[in-house]
Design a protein around this nucleic acid. Structure first.
Lengths: 229, 229
DNA sequence: TGCGCATAAATTGTTAACAATTAGAATCGA
DNA sequence: TCGATTCTAATTGTTAACAATTTATGCGCA
């Protein structure tokens, strides 16, 4: 959020950002400037700046003379995002173990309690935010703000990816995995913790329906096989 | 460069971006809108959009009601950037070794020839660009565009950091290190290659004058020690 | 009905004038 | 001469009108 300068733009940016990340604005949604002007009671310049900031984080796509749309990451981009997260978050976890102090242990335990308390309470936006918070907490403990900012962007995009490719199984049952991860972190064993993080991120990715290259190619023929004459 | 939408903004963005990265615009330089309007023959909106895009990549700092300045990364940020690069580029090198194809080997050899040809030709901007190109080439071979974009940003910021904290020894003698790295990559040994990359990035950082915490604290007393009564 | 074409509406892009803020210069008083 | 204060110039922030583009609508025609 560093580059957002005017308070008004910041406000608009955050509102749209949250709506996208919490999956209240589905991928592909068109964001018309005039609508946003009405919603936020702001002028068009502010709206345009906010949209540009969102576009830079790849949460919004700007099309020349056509306007702004909530991004729809491709399966390839989805895989790239999770591959990048594995790289970055393994490093973060390793550093977090090294740097962990008593206050951090407490923060981790408190976070897990929150997750447990929320349960499958059907409050999806809150659940999404909380899940992300766990990963952001580890980044904060690791202490590299630059890497943290990068991860923030990847987490936000993950939300969009999950919204698009979520399997019908629905609810992300990742609380157990966070519990496991926390145990590994608190045990102080960096190898175990990084392995746990890698597994966690792989599982999230596996829960998605990301079409393979072959699938994508035979698309139409397969779909309409019964209707061909 | 994905989020830049209008061609005009793109043009302005790239011109300033290159000037900063090639160290023709030193850190701290003020970028006045009216000056830029004159230079680029564009309107203020385009200038403002370009500056906002640059701010988002942390190459420019926007101050409320004061304007835009070329960023001046702190020593802490400098260390964070290089730490992030070590994490990301080790992963990139590992993947690059795995994915390397004949055309990629050729590209690497050709790049090194270019670096050798340029030599210490005192054309610093060209040297900087070429050095960055080597790292970008490896990212391209690794094939993760998302990670590549992230690295692009870190490389650009590195340029700014080097401009600020470069030791008087002056010229970056990193060509030898690139040669070493290339050898490791072409040997196909991922361990050797990642170790080589880590060493390379550490050496770049070590060549900088990044004040340690203690140094920063005793600053004034130390500087004026002789003048105290 | 279906298709192409012309027209109108909605939307984004551009421009210039105006307001607000900051930085610098000049003035005044001790 | 120094310090504070007031005014002026330079600069950024904001607004609204206008232009260009895209999308939707309606009409004619086969």
């Amino acid at each position: 959020m560093a580059s957002v300068v005017a308070r008004e733009v910041q406000r608009i940016f955050t509102a749209i950002y949250d709506a996208i990340v919490e999956q209240r604005l589905p991928p592909g949604t068109r964001l018309t400037e005039l609508n946003l002007v009405e919603v936020f009671g702001a002028n068009r310049n502010h709206i345009r700046s906010a949209l540009r900031d969102l576009a830079h984080r790849k949460l919004v796509r700007l099309e020349m003379n056509r306007g702004a749309f909530v991004e729809e990451p491709t399966p390839e981009q989805a895989r790239e995002v999770f591959a990048a997260r594995r790289v970055i978050e393994q490093a973060i976890v390793e550093e977090a173990v090294r740097r962990m102090r008593p206050a951090d242990r407490k923060a981790i335990r408190e976070h897990l309690a929150e997750e447990l308390a929320l349960g499958h309470d059907s409050d999806k936006p809150a659940f999404i935010r909380l899940s992300g918070d766990f990963h952001r907490l580890l980044a904060r403990i690791a202490g590299n703000g630059t890497l943290g900012d990068i991860l923030d962007g990847l987490i936000a995009r993950s939300s969009l990816i999950i919204a698009l490719y979520e399997n019908q199984t629905g609810v992300q049952c990742s609380h157990n995995e966070h519990q496991e991860l926390a145990d590994a972190l608190l045990s102080g064993d960096p190898q175990r913790a990084t392995a746990c993080m890698a597994r966690h991120l792989l599982k999230i990715e596996e829960r998605l329906r990301l079409a393979t290259a072959e699938e994508a190619e035979i698309d139409l023929f397969q779909v309409f096989a019964a209707h061909r004459k």
